[in-house]
């Protein structure tokens, strides 16, 4: 059995900002460590990398990681990232967001980032809920869940993040679960290595604000539940509505937006030079 890579995490963290504000047992910590392992292995140049996050527990990622970091308004990190990428196309930009941030208030930015296939990596932490504000219903809260804004059970149909991403045109789409750190490392690394818009959905646990109201008050119980609710089998996922894990799409040939734009810039300038010469 393979083991997690050994990494000096502190090297990548703003250690003076620790400990994190996340609840004990929260999946965010495990995901941040997985991201660090991927960054370490890929050795992305630190100064050429930016991490952008929005509002929610996932929003805290940008504060802890020692990179160019930007913590923006609710739902908007992809829009800020798009501007930044277009202004500085050499930059590697990672967006860390949640299900509320990216699927609800930021839903429009999400589908359009997919459509453009702009070279950004979106790690979307899906914990079924708005954790930071107390567990309200999000577009991924399971039906019938109990929540402060669904005290009689949620009647909101849910989004399948990955299907939305694929339908909207993202060239890399994958899903993983916080219960499987090795798989998480693999997916995040693959997402970061991809050139084009890459979506890595991580099913994660908010045992405090979703779990407690839905019979999974202990972190371990909820993590186990998430593992049980996940599968590598497309058939099983179809049949039982389980979360399908793995790389669901990887298309390296698809045109990347920023590259296409700057090719156009070159063509325009070449034409100008030609005109001047003539």
């Amino acid at each position: 059995m393979s083991k997690l890579a050994e990494v000096d995490y502190n090297q990548y963290l703003r250690v003076h900002k620790l400990p994190t504000t996340w609840c004990a047992g929260c999946g965010d910590g495990a995901i941040m460590k997985s991201l660090i392992r991927a960054l370490d292995e890929l050795q992305l140049p630190r100064d050429e990398t930016a991490i952008i996050s929005g509002i929610g527990c996932s929003g805290r990622f940008s504060g802890y990681l020692d990179y160019n970091t930007l913590h923006v308004t609710h739902g908007r990190p992809l829009a800020f990232a798009t501007g930044m990428k277009m202004a500085h196309p050499k930059g590697k930009i990672i967006v860390v967001s949640g299900d509320g941030d990216s699927l609800a208030i930021g839903g429009n930015h999400f589908i359009h980032a997919c459509r453009r296939n702009i070279d950004l990596t979106l790690i979307i932490i899906n914990n079924y809920t708005y954790g930071l504000t107390g567990g309200q219903v999000s577009p991924s809260t399971p039906l019938d869940s109990s929540s402060p804004t669904a005290p009689y059970g949620s009647i909101e149909p849910t989004f399948d993040t990955c299907k939305v991403a694929m339908a909207a045109g993202a060239s890399f789409v994958s899903r993983t679960v916080v219960a499987s750190p090795l798989h998480m490392d693999k997916m995040i690394k693959a997402g970061l290595s991809h050139s084009g818009f890459s979506v890595v959905e991580v099913m994660s646990n908010c045992h405090i604000n979703w779990g407690r109201k839905n019979e999974y008050a202990a972190a371990a119980d909820l993590i186990k539940h998430l593992k049980d609710r996940s599968t590598f089998s497309a058939e099983e996922s179809e049949a039982d509505g389980k979360h399908l894990l793995g790389i669901l799409r990887q298309d390296a040939e698809m045109k990347e937006y920023a590259t296409t734009y700057y090719q156009m810039v070159e063509a325009v300038q070449a034409k100008m030079a030609e005109k001047k010469g003539a």
Binding site: L70, V72, R76, F80, T82, M84, M86, A87
Partner: peptide, 20 residues
């Protein structure tokens, strides 16, 4: 130049760009 998906996004994008 980029035409964004909405007004909110275009305001966000110019801030992201300005930070570079």
């Amino acid at each position: 130049f980029i035409q964004m998906e909405d007004e909110i996004a275009s305001m966000a994008a110019i801030i992201g760009a300005s930070l570079t």
